[in-house]
Simulated assay, not measured.
Amino acid sequence: MFLIDKEKNEAVSISKKSFQELEFRERKHLQEWICKNTDILGERLLIIQKEFSGFDDTKERLDLLAIDENGSLVIIENKLDDSGRDVVWQSLKYASYCSGLTKSDIKDIFQRYLDEQGNNEYAEKVLCEFLGIEDFSEVELNSDDQRIIMIAANFRKEVTSTAMWLLDHHIKIKCIKVTPYELNKQILLDTEQIIPIVDAEEYLIKIANKKQEELIHKEKKQTRHTIRIDFWTKLLQEMNEKSELFRNISPSKDNWIGCGSGYSGLAYMFVVTGNYARIELWINRGLQEENKELFDRIYTYKERIESDFGDELDWQRLDEGKGSRIAYWLKEVSVFNEEDWPQMIEFMTSSMIKFERALKGVLKDVIKK
C-alpha cells in the first residue's frame, strides 16, 4: 500500500504489519472491530451473538453469529495472521449446528446478546427495523441455507481450495483477507474479498443457481406467498360483490394490496399478518412535510369521519417516517390460519366500504384547500 505525496509527486510506501507484532488479539480486537462495523466484511449484517456456545453436547464456540438482510444466519470465523488448517471444518460444523435454530431460538439468542451488551432494546423490534419489516410475525429467519464468512490475514492453500469447492457446490462461503498497515503510528486496515472474487461473484452465483435448478425439482407445497395469494383471491371476490373500489386489483404474494383513492399519493390498503388484519388510508405524496400537513388537515375532520364510520379509528401521524396512515384493526387473527379467513374477510370488506364512504367527502374538501 502506498501514500501519494501530491507535493513531491511520489508514492510513499506504507509499512505492512502483522497482527502479532502490533499486539492485536483475535477476540479482544478483530472480533470487536467487526461487531462495531460489519462493513469490514463488505456487507450490512446484524450481529446477534458473539462467542456463541448454544450447541447441545459440545463446548465449542463460534466467534460471531449474525443475520444478513435476507434473514439468513451468517457464521463468522475470525483468525489473525494465519487461517489455520481447520477453519473450514470448524465453520461447517457451526453451520450445521445452527441449521436447526428456529425463529424463536434466534430471537432469544439475540435478546440475550442485547441484554449482555447493556442494550435495553427488544430483539423483535431491532430485527424488524434491520430487515425493514413492520410486524415480527412476517419476519422469516434461517429459512434459507446458512452462510459462512471467514476472515484472516493469510489463508492457507488447503483452505482456499476447499472454500472454492464448497462454493461450487452451493455452500454460501466467503473469505475476507485483512491486512494491517502502520503510518506515523496510525494503524490502517485493508480488507479484500478473495473468495468469491468480487468481480466474478454475481456470475458464479448465477452458475451455481442454474446448476441447482437443473438438479433439484421443487416440491409443490403451500408457502407463505401462496397462502396470501389464496386469501387475497377470496377477499377480492367478496369485495367485488359489494363495491367497485378494488375491481381492478389482482391478488398478491405480499401481505398488503392497495388501490387508488382518486387523489395522488392517497391509497386505500388492506394489510394482513400472522397477528392482525387492518384497513387503512396510506398518505404518501413524496415529501414528508407535505404528508404531515395533509394528515393534519384530514385530522381536523376526525369527529365527523368517525361518526360517519361508526367507530374510533387509529390516527397514526408517524412523525419519524415519510408517510402517515389512518387505520382500523382486527386483532388476534392470522392470515396463516384459514379458520380465521371468514371473520377477516367480513371485517375487512365491510369496514373498507364504510371507511371509504366516511372519507370520500372529507378528502374532496381537504384536497381543494
Rank of each mutant, 00 (worst) to 15 (best):
L167D: 06
L167P: 00
D168T: 11
H169M: 01
I171N: 00
I173N: 00
I173Y: 00
K174L: 04
K174H: 05
I176H: 00
I176D: 00
I176K: 01
K177T: 03
T179K: 06
Y181N: 02
Y181I: 01
L183I: 04
Q186C: 14
Q186V: 10
L188W: 04
L188T: 04
L189Y: 07
L189E: 03
D190Y: 11
T191L: 02
E192G: 00
E192Q: 06
I194A: 08
P196N: 03
V198C: 06
D199Q: 14
A200K: 08
E202H: 06
Y203E: 05
L204T: 08
K206V: 01
K211P: 05
K211L: 08
K211M: 08
Q212W: 12
Q212A: 12
Q212T: 11
E213T: 09
L215D: 07
I216R: 12
K218T: 07
K218E: 13
E219R: 11
K221E: 04
H225M: 12
T226A: 13
T226W: 11
T226K: 15
R228I: 04
F231T: 01
W232C: 02
W232P: 03
W232F: 13
T233V: 10
K234H: 11
L236K: 08
Q237F: 12
Q237G: 15
E238K: 14
M239C: 14
N240W: 03
E244K: 13
N248R: 11
I249K: 06
S250L: 13
P251R: 01
P251D: 05
S252E: 05
S252P: 07
K253D: 15
D254Q: 13
G258L: 05
G260S: 12
S261W: 10
Y263N: 04
S264Y: 09
G265Q: 03
A267T: 09
M269H: 12
V271M: 09
V272A: 03
G274E: 03
G274F: 00
N275D: 12
N275T: 07
N275R: 04
Y276W: 09
Y276V: 04
Y276H: 14
Y276Q: 15
R278F: 00
R278Q: 10
R278A: 10
R278S: 13
R278M: 12
N284P: 07
G286F: 08
G286T: 03
E289N: 10
E289R: 12
E289F: 09
E290P: 00
N291A: 03
N291K: 04
E293H: 08
E293Y: 05
L294S: 00
L294Y: 00
F295P: 05
Y301M: 05
Y301E: 06
S307V: 05
S307A: 09
S307D: 14
D308V: 05
F309L: 06
D311A: 15
D311Y: 10
E312I: 07
L313G: 05
L313N: 03
D314M: 12
